[in-house]
Design a protein around this nucleic acid. Structure first.
Lengths: 210, 210
DNA sequence: GCAAATTAATGATTTATTCAAG
DNA sequence: CTTGAATAAATCATTAATTTGC
């Protein structure tokens, strides 16, 4: 996980000619912001941010596999070149986390010199990278913490719980019971009282430490 | 699954009471609402919510600050366990923001099963968590705006623009452009340009493909 | 050595939150 | 209370690594 160097490059940059079919919609309706129901922030909704998968159908089904996909000009997902990755990581290290539309533009422009790339790729890259860095970090933190506070009773439970909110199977079903004010989870157990004041908890189902 | 684990604790409340040197007047005036200039809802004024640091003297003296104010039972400040955090966050997500005195009682009772905890810990946790969530959000909003306007190469424009809604005004000096709020990696390489506006890239150092 | 099979990474989408404006 | 804007978390899907049998 340390070294994601992809030896792709050159092949991808074909983009230029292949984009044949309506790069960004085109013709008439370039203002269609919803071609991607992606919940992109409005700032990304300008036609600049069409994000239409470079305009192709996406043919995600037929499994044309390796046959000629590798001509990736446009049929496959973005495959960042080493240069692109290097730059993106440098930006990330520099503190960039959620680039603005304009920044994405610039970045895309710059990175396009190293292979095909679109704004959405940059956008997603930061989203994913940020999330995964955090995840990585969190995990180690939790593990450390977990080691310290074994208060959960069984390490296994603790571990499994780490990521999930209260899926502690079996043992402590009392999880859903405190859903106080609003936003109900939907899993209505008998214990739920939702009135916020009373029976916030199962009221001492068991005890477990100190 | 959220992950804002704040290891808050009660340290903050120190200031509140120490200022007047009447920690929890208690004895006679239990109805004194102002012992904590914290804007505690009146409902917290019952003696139940004296928050007298668990009944100990509280060393109301000068600047008891962090020294030992939080010397809860053991001598250290509250250190929430993972379970406690998990539960508190679940409640927060469930919509709880400012639990009533009764709710705090219940929550404290429940959480005490996972480690030492007092009502004030719960109370302050919600105060802090709410505040920090808001802060975090506001900051990212500002940053986004900042990033947008200041963009990559015209700080001036940016500044003028952001005056309108970013209170960050003056003292924020417009952040380091991208440098978000979050968990900074800390591993900054030389390429960091931190001014965010200029030299996002080496600006075309060379070319290498196509 | 080479591919099919398997696993690990990571790009792309969807879903759930948050706060606060209306 | 409802809804808009924005983001983060969770998840889906595909590509690259790698393992394995020959």
């Amino acid at each position: 996980m340390k070294h994601h160097h992809f030896f792709i490059n050159a092949s991808t940059l074909v983009h230029a000619h292949e984009s044949s079919s309506t790069p960004c919609p085109s013709s008439s309706t370039r203002n269609s912001t919803s071609q991607w129901h992606l919940s992109l922030p409005s700032k990304f909704n300008s036609d600049l941010w069409c994000f239409k998968n470079s305009g192709r159908p996406m043919a995600r089904s037929s499994k044309l596999s390796a046959s000629f996909v590798e001509t990736q000009s446009g049929g496959t997902r973005w495959n960042p070149s080493t240069e692109q990755i290097r730059i993106l990581e440098a930006l990330y290290r520099g503190g960039m986390r959620t680039p603005s539309a304009h920044q994405i533009e610039l970045i895309t422009a710059e990175l396009s010199r190293y292979g095909r790339i679109e704004g959405k790729n940059v956008f997603y890259w930061f989203q994913n990278h940020k999330a995964r860095e955090r995840q990585k970090q969190k995990r180690s933190a939790l593990l450390a913490l977990c080691a310290n506070t074994t208060d959960i009773m069984s390490p296994s439970a603790a571990v499994s719980n780490m990521g999930k909110e209260c899926s502690m199977a079996g043992n402590k079903k009392r999880c859903r019971s405190w859903n106080v004010a609003g936003i109900d989870d939907g899993d209505h157990d008998k214990e739920k009282s939702c009135d916020g004041t009373l029976e916030l908890f199962p009221l001492h189902p068991e005890r477990k430490d100190t």
